[in-house]
Design a protein around this nucleic acid. Structure first.
Lengths: 152, 152
DNA sequence: CGACATTATATTGCGCGCAATATATCTCGG
DNA sequence: CCGAGATATATTGCGCGCAATATAATGTCG
């Protein structure tokens, strides 16, 4: 018997999104390797380049990564001398992640990265914008769903 | 000084796609765990449910995973008794991955998975179709780009 | 004040993604 | 037939994703 429509691999939205995301991360590789960063590390650095200092939880929220990923990742950034971890004065639980001079300096060398990626020219500006909007909708819808399931 | 537009985290298409893909895989978790499958394992099973037997390379191509991922993954599927590995008669290099009876039987229990996912209702049918088209375009463009870079 | 939930972070274990490398086996030109 | 590439698969090492768990500090409410 033949495969029902909905089980066909080429019909799965998830495979398309999954493989596109993986290919995207691979595409960043050649641009980030010279900077000594992986793609998720780059996300955290982007967050810090916007604000020199942030609690781990804040980095998790803005990069959409989880604490199990961010804690060791930040330790690796610290080992490279790009960030430092300090204690917040008002709340002994929170660890502030702070850019070092070296970490701040890396921003200049990273400035070309988004530009180069855009220049791969795989999607037009409108396609990119549309894809971003749909991805954000999907992300937020799924996260919402997780929350609901988590309570019930 | 403030962050230039193109370095702003909330402007990155890649973060949107990346986090959407991760959320999608997480969303499959509760549906696949009862079947004893991870999401990439599910992709390989989908490929095999379409055709009982396939060389590893063929599975890689259809699931868009690479050999370093698929080889140990298939070994885990074999350990669960869902597949078997045999030798092709005509070419001693290729290993055929074959569904076992147990693996074939699992298809019935997986039939509801795509339906349940669709019923999360995060994207409309048109949005889903559009997102799939854009994702495939992005994937194929990036893979094309990898190939070109790989040669030069 | 003291039990108890909540919050911030860290840790562990397993599977995956990927680059790099290794090892057969095949193909093809000479 | 022989040797140079090409092809199919496997292996290794590291970083990440995530669920589950642990630990400590904070907040809250009786």
């Amino acid at each position: 018997m033949s495969t029902p429509e909905h089980l066909r691999l080429d019909r799965q939205l998830c495979l398309s999104v999954y493989s596109a995301a993986n290919a995207l991360v691979r595409a960043y590789g050649p641009l980030l390797r010279p900077l000594g960063l992986t793609y998720p590390q780059y996300l955290v650095m982007l967050a810090l380049w916007e604000r020199d200092e942030a609690p781990v939880t804040d980095l998790c929220a803005r990069t959409r990564l989880d604490t199990g990923t961010v804690t060791p990742l930040v330790n690796r950034l610290a080992a490279k001398g790009l960030v430092r971890k300090t204690h917040a004065r008002d709340d002994a639980r929170v660890r502030l992640v702070t850019l070092t001079t070296k970490g701040r300096a890396l921003r200049a060398r990273a400035a070309h990265v988004p530009i180069q990626m855009a220049c791969l020219g795989v999607l037009s500006a409108e396609q990119g914008a549309h894809m971003k909007a749909l991805s954000d909708t999907l992300y937020q819808g799924l996260v919402m769903h997780e929350r609901l399931a988590g309570e019930g």
